[in-house]
Design a protein around this nucleic acid. Structure first.
Lengths: 338, 338
DNA sequence: AAATCCGGCTAACACGTTTTAATAGATCAC
DNA sequence: GTGATCTATTAAAACGTGTTAGCCGGATTT
């Protein structure tokens, strides 16, 4: 039938099944001559190792789990690409789970991962409760937090400095001479939004200015282009436009841009505009968008490397909380030449 | 330690391990009273089934594989979301593989999936060679093709009518009175591009017009916004703008839009513009973009349902080649009110 | 009352691999 | 030439679950 086992390979090569296993897992322990014979038999019979049997005996699989909050968001997609490529290069497969912001779905995904006895889990948690992960770690499943800081020292995490990103953005606007800045944030229940806002405030203070008069906060109900356009329309209604707008998200920024351009406002001369994330579209917009770039792909890559190091070298592994620095990308929307 | 087995649950509930297995797999065969006792024991001990042991014994897993061409493309992301959600609801996990257009990576991904003895595979193949899938099917792994037509009647596939989509787009432009239309396509090695182009030509013929004088073909080297903008700049250089442009892709269309607007061309009054895919950004663009919408999420959903039906009911399953119809979405770039 | 049936449960083997302890053969020191 | 050391291989025992055949006791039939 379709299923050819280690035993048949052994018979074909004239050795015992144990030797086949050695060829597969510790090739250096087997004499070159027999190794060659075995490899030939494997090819002739089209043998492929039964991963489940392997996992059952070894106690752990060569699969890692990845649970993200929103598979539709380019940020997470880029992270996922980094994870997939890194894991694949090291011989690991990736099981993908999309929690879609729902805790119930996240729980269910983690349960599936536990059933599969995955080697480890990468997760961008929906909330701040660390209890769920302990449940996994009791089962010898390593966990690395992605885009979320670890609460405990014996836990790896990979994040990007959101406070620093907010600071950069607003410092840039201040440097261009803006003194009445609007910060259009997303829901402040989102940690990233809170920190970017904090960074914005710090930049104002660092410049020796008064935060309350310099920075006006507007909280959008969602981080979408539609919400951004609505926010822009409300600004226009008040009659007093800010000199610059810092959006917590490129999608918001794109919406604001559209709203302003439709009303005949000149960007960047009347109002300067900067977003966050540097999604592909930021560069392609009618007025190309200045933004804060995050090393998304690298985020996934490093998280995966940390996870697999923790799995493969449990003795020497040192838990790390890595924080990347974002990068200011200047384009037309804050007055840079294209 | 962390690992609690069926045996311990059995002891706790005062039954044999076989009964636990029955509770998990055929609950109706066990008396309500004992079932309740077992379920309680499971909860108390925090038992979770060992997926690999289960797979080994049962001969198949509760995992399906998904191999896509480009995880960064919103089209595939949306398909993946449909797959993930549908599979998850039916108790299946999804292993994600990104072939990134490389056949070698695709091969490697399929190998990993074969090792895991996945229940089935959803794949958007990089080329037209059907031999690779036969290799899987010999191992009792079902295969459903996504966004690619099946060559054989005993093979399921789910596609979207690309010829029809091209037809719709150009018919709409003709209906607005355009008689000099530019079709900006992507590389014609891509099947989808070839078919959309064919549809465009058919629409012209159906309107009783001459294809060669009505439709000008421009082939972009890539389907990106940058390539679109460059194409627009070349059109402007010639001095003779078309009355309308049909792009094989929204990203191309966004680039064209940017190029035209920067040159002071009015869209849609001077040049009408329509894209393909209806990515989120199409609606958010400065001049919102008319486009051809594909039922991406549903594509993933139906493909998954077909696959699991083929797995669970091998007797009654009827292989199907399903083709969805795309949908015309009208916005400002072809003159519709916003 | 004996024969039959049936629901509910158990015992035990099988799935394909990894790993440990043991074996046989070869090499080496003395 | 004898015993010790080392190398290449093997036999056999796990890993945790699913499944099959069979057992037991009570209910139903004749």
């Amino acid at each position: 039938m379709g299923t050819v086992t280690i035993k048949e390979v052994a018979q074909r090569a004239g050795v015992s099944p144990g030797t086949i296993s050695n060829v597969l897992n510790r090739p250096e322990r087997v004499a070159p001559a027999t190794r060659k014979r075995v490899e030939e038999a494997i090819r002739e019979l089209g043998f492929v190792r039964h991963g489940s049997a392997s996992t059952l005996r070894a106690g752990h699989s060569r699969i890692i789990g990845l649970s993200v909050m929103d598979i539709g968001n380019p940020f997470f997609t880029d992270v996922a690409a980094g994870v997939e490529e890194t894991a694949s290069a090291l011989g690991y497969a990736v099981i993908l789970g999309n929690s879609a912001g729902s805790l119930a779905k996240e729980e269910r995904n983690l349960r599936v991962l536990a059933e599969q006895r995955v080697r480890g889990v990468l997760i961008t948690p929906s909330d701040d409760d660390p209890a769920r992960f302990d449940q996994l770690r009791e089962r010898d499943i390593s966990v690395v937090l992605v885009d979320h800081p670890a609460h405990r020292p014996d836990q790896c995490s990979v994040t990007v400095n959101d406070v620093g990103g907010g600071q950069m953005a607003v410092a840039h606007l201040l440097g261009r001479g803006a003194r009445r800045i609007c910060h259009l944030t997303g829901p402040l229940t989102i940690r990233q939004c809170r920190e970017r806002k904090l960074g914005a405030e710090q930049a104002v203070i660092a410049a020796g200015l008064d935060p309350t008069s310099t920075l006006e906060l507007v909280e959008a109900p969602a981080m979408t282009a539609r919400a951004g356009q609505q926010a822009a329309e409300r600004m226009l209604d008040t009659g007093l436009l800010p000199e610059a707008v810092f959006c917590a998200n490129d999608l918001l920024a794109v919406g604001v841009l559209r709203g302003l351009l439709l009303a005949g406002v000149n960007v960047p001369d009347d109002v300067a505009l900067i977003g966050y994330d540097d999604i592909d579209f930021a560069a392609a917009s009618t007025v190309s968008l200045s933004s804060i770039r995050q090393p998304t792909y690298r985020l996934g890559q490093i998280a995966t490397e940390l996870l697999l190091d923790e799995c493969d070298n449990p003795g020497t592994h040192a838990h790390q909380q890595i924080m990347f620095q974002p990068e200011l990308v200047l384009r037309e929307s804050t007055g840079s030449p294209r």
